[in-house]
Amino acid sequence: MAKTQLNVRVDEGTARAARERALARGMSVNRYIEELVKQDTGEVGQTFVEAAADFMKQYESVFAEEFGADGEGREAGRGEGRH
């Protein structure tokens, strides 16, 4: 597959982190970034999103009971807020 050059600007901390992560994985920064994008747009990301949606649908009533429609926990109404 043909390669296309992509130039990006990031702050020094992000660049340092990318270099360190790539080195720790034994790959170039270019390859590291390429893999991150593939993971983000690929099947792994989609599988996670679908699993999270299924989980939320399955436990929707539990969340509604615990947090209510207004986002306040059931304990907040009794003066027993979480810490």
Score class of each variant (00 low, 15 high):
A69K: 09
A53R: 08
L6S: 07
M56T: 10
G71W: 02
D40C: 09
L6A: 07
R19A: 08
D70C: 03
K57V: 07
G13F: 05
E50I: 09
R9C: 06
E72T: 02
E20A: 07
E35K: 13
M56E: 06
R82Y: 14
A69Y: 00
R16W: 06
E60R: 12
K38C: 10
A18R: 00
Y32T: 01
S28V: 03
A15F: 07
Q39C: 12
K57I: 06
R31Q: 15
Y59S: 04
H83K: 15
R74T: 11
A15T: 05
R19L: 05
E43V: 13
E35L: 14
E66T: 11
V37D: 04
E35H: 10
T4P: 01
G68N: 12
D70K: 02
T14G: 04
G42S: 06
T14M: 05
A15R: 12
G68A: 10
D54H: 11
R25K: 15
R25N: 06
K57M: 06
Q58K: 10
F55S: 03
E66K: 15
G71T: 02
M27W: 02
M27Y: 02
E20I: 02
E60F: 07
A2H: 06
K3E: 15
G42F: 13
H83I: 13
G45C: 06
N30W: 01
Q5V: 12
V44Y: 12
E12V: 12
A18I: 02
A76C: 01
L23T: 07
R82N: 08
E34M: 03
A52M: 12
T4C: 08
E43G: 09
A18H: 03
V62L: 06
G45M: 09
Q5S: 15
R9N: 09
T4K: 14
I33H: 00
M27F: 05
K57G: 08
A76N: 01
F67S: 03
V44C: 11
A64S: 14
R21W: 03
H83E: 14
E65A: 05
E72Q: 13
G68K: 10
M27V: 15
S28K: 04
A51L: 15
R82W: 11
T14N: 05
L23S: 13
E43N: 11
G81H: 13
R78W: 08
R19D: 08
E50D: 12
D40W: 14
G73K: 01
E43R: 13
R16P: 00
Y32G: 00
E34Q: 10
G73T: 11
R74V: 15
Q46G: 07
A64T: 04
R16V: 04
G73Y: 00
R82V: 06
V62H: 08
A18Q: 03
R16S: 11
A15Y: 14
G45K: 03
A52V: 10
G71V: 00
D70R: 02
V62R: 07
F67H: 12
R78D: 10
I33V: 13
L23E: 13
T47F: 12
E60I: 07
A52W: 07
R9H: 07
R31G: 09
E75A: 13
E20Q: 07
V29T: 04
M1P: 04
T41G: 04
A76L: 00
E50N: 13
I33D: 00
M1R: 15
R16M: 05
A64I: 04
R31H: 12
A15H: 14
D54E: 14
E72N: 10
V29A: 00
D11S: 12
